[in-house]
């Protein structure tokens, strides 16, 4: 496989996972930037464990996911139901603290980067398998009472809690699952790319992910499945001179999308319409004896 296609497929898988990690907490109206820290921690842990301790791939992946969940678990006690802007700042500060810590740790390569992560056979296949499992999990959550409760919280937090939704526990749950997804993405990232640099995990990544999520549509999980490959493909097609301005392209796209297409490319309404077309007509329910007044 040519390296170009390999990188395209790897980054697509990782970014879809990360976008889903953003998507879940946004269901309850939180921009959970902490997931990038989860990804970073898990990536560095996986890389270190695989290289120094020769841990097997599956174990590393599991522990990486657990680390992501753990990082989200601890703050979620405080910010499970916090307003959006507080969650954003918590996420950004943790990211910068973690970055400073890694840059100052010799064992993790410092600012020079961390190299030599062992290769795994059939990694892309395994990565897409993980993606499918994660997708199934999110689909199940979206179509359960949790998903419906989340939609209510997104529209009106107070009304939702008045109707008996435990906003904080819902937020915590979504944050932790998002952390797990990001941990998984980080672990896969370490193995797929093979080297890690602290500069990679910055505000730019957050901007990229937000752009992909909002352009694809933040009200369903399917939007990013389309938008991520498109943006990654764009990355490859564009000439280098233009591609170096990618951050600017992402930023402008994000602003334009929010102004012109507030719901993104794929919205919930659209999905409902498509669903109606494919679904069989609802059965008419007959009640014996008719309805009594």
């Amino acid at each position: 496989m040519s390296p170009v296609i390999y990188y395209f497929l790897s980054f697509t898988a990782i970014n879809i996972l990360m976008c889903w990690a953003f998507y879940l907490p946004y269901r309850v109206g939180q921009l959970h930037h902490l997931v990038v820290s989860c990804m970073m921690a898990s990536a560095y842990f996986s890389g270190y464990a695989a290289r120094q301790w020769s841990w097997p791939f599956a174990l590393t992946l599991l522990v990486g996911t657990a680390i992501g969940m753990l990082i989200c678990l601890l703050p979620s006690f405080a910010i499970g139901d916090a307003p959006c802007f507080t969650v954003v700042i918590v996420g950004l500060t943790v990211l910068f603290i973690m970055k400073t810590a890694i840059e100052n740790t010799r064992a993790l390569g410092g600012t020079l980067g961390f190299f030599g992560i062992p290769q795994v056979n059939n990694l892309l296949l395994l990565a897409y398998l993980c993606l499918a499992v994660a997708g199934l999990l999110i689909y199940r959550i979206d179509n359960s009472r949790l998903g419906r409760a989340a939609s209510m919280v997104f529209v009106d937090r107070d009304a939702a809690s008045a109707l008996g939704v435990d906003v904080k526990r819902l937020g915590m749950l979504f944050q932790i699952i998002a952390g797990g997804l990001a941990g998984l993405a980080g672990s896969l990232y370490a193995f797929l790319i093979g080297s890690l640099f602290p500069e990679f995990f910055n505000l730019g990544v957050i901007g990229t992910l937000m752009c992909m999520l909002f352009a694809g549509g933040h009200s369903t999980m399917w939007g990013v499945v389309i938008s991520v490959p498109v943006f990654e493909g764009l990355h490859l097609i564009l000439p280098t001179a233009v591609a170096s301005w990618l951050q600017v392209i992402y930023a402008v796209t994000l602003i334009v999308v929010i102004l012109v297409l507030p719901g993104g490319l794929i919205t919930k309404k659209m999905l409902v319409k498509v669903g109606e077309r494919f679904r069989a007509r609802p059965q008419t329910v007959s009640i014996k004896g008719g309805i009594k007044e």
């Binding site: 109206g29 921009l31 959006c84 802007f85 954003v88 505000l203 730019g204 957050i206 901007g207 937000m210 752009c211 909002f214 301005w245 951050q247 600017v248 992402y250 930023a251 402008v252 994000l254 602003i255 929010i258 102004l259 507030p262």
Partner: peptide, 24 residues
Amino acid sequence: KKHGLDINVSFVVSISIALLITDV
């Protein structure tokens, strides 16, 4: 005009403006 006075969305937009300025 599009979203009403939605502070969260203004936050997202301003972060992208920040990225733009930083990148320039």
